[in-house]
């Protein structure tokens, strides 16, 4: 755990960003796009210090559910939702905290790597802090850059070219840069939306290692299509399913080992053994 101290860009206030991994609880979450319902009363407990994998065939609402967890869902026009999402017992949708604070505590890594191409690698790492009003300089900035990149397993590859643009990296490196960027603001939960689906197997392996490293200081929720990946990286698992006229819902959830070895629901068994989806 690190403490980052810095200045608000318009004052000399010192902030303490020390945070510990948080648990999340979703209760009866439903989601709509316009009048089309895509999630039906999904409830899930996400425990701190663990990796939770959301699995299921495409179009079953996994990503929508993930985006609901840090209030990215509402950015889609005509999107709406019902139910409650708690972050360490605090309702993120009805609580007094502004949405920017919520998103800062619950970071997100997207399917397609999206570093800011106009910024250097170091600036990319610091961009989250800058966006939330913390401007670091000199040594403290360097420390944050180094530490975040180390945690994301990218430091050794880019230490000599921190001032090159972030867009010049390879796809796998870009994705790790995005992880470093998300980690730099010390989130309590990190959401990953199929972070490896656009990457080659080697990069995928590196990112999975990275996840294993950081799982100690941040709760991870990952959406994945890849059964083996879910088995490798996660301790908890939830299986989503949607049929063509019903919205997505969770068929079964529990410890990953159990879900894969002796699932209760026959559909889960079929899916994890690759028989459909």
């Amino acid at each position: 755990m690190t403490t980052i101290t810095g200045n608000w860009d318009d004052g000399a206030q010192v902030i303490d960003l020390t945070r510990s991994p948080a648990s999340m609880r979703a209760h009866n979450v439903s989601a709509w796009f316009g009048n089309h319902k895509v999630l039906e009363r999904v409830s899930l407990d996400i425990s701190a210090h663990q990796v939770t994998a959301l699995i299921g065939p495409s179009g079953c609402g996994k990503s929508t559910f993930l985006r609901i967890l840090n209030r990215m869902h509402e950015l889609v026009p005509s999107a709406s939702l019902a139910g409650t999402v708690l972050l360490d017992g605090e309702d993120i949708y009805r609580g007094p905290k502004p949405v920017t604070d919520i998103r800062r505590q619950i970071g997100m890594v997207f399917q397609k790597p999206n570093p800011f191409p106009a910024m250097s690698i170091a600036d990319n790492v610091l961009s989250g802090l800058r966006l939330s009003g913390t401007r670091l300089h000199g040594r403290s900035a360097h420390a944050v850059v180094q530490q975040s990149l180390e945690r994301a397993g990218l430091w050794n590859e880019v230490r000599r070219r921190l001032s090159e643009p972030g867009g010049a990296l390879s796809g796998g490196q870009q994705q790790r840069l995005c992880i470093a960027r998300a980690l730099a603001v010390e989130p309590r939960v990190l959401l990953m939306d199929e972070p490896c689906s656009a990457l080659d197997p080697t990069s995928t392996g590196v990112i999975e290692e990275t996840m294993a490293h950081i799982a100690h200081d941040v709760t991870i929720v990952i959406v994945t299509h890849n059964m083996q990946q879910a088995q490798r990286v996660s301790q908890q698992c939830a299986f989503f399913l949607a049929t063509h006229d019903t919205p997505g819902y969770i068929v079964e959830s529990g410890p990953t080992e159990q879900m894969f070895s002796e699932p209760e629901d026959p559909r889960t068994r079929d899916y994890v053994h690759g028989r459909f989806g």
Partner: peptide
Amino acid sequence: APPGEKEGALALGGTRWGMIRAVVLPF
């Protein structure tokens, strides 16, 4: 302006103005 980058800025906890300054204006 690329929607992926805009979402990235917002997901980091940026305000709308912060997102505009980080993504839209440079682009």
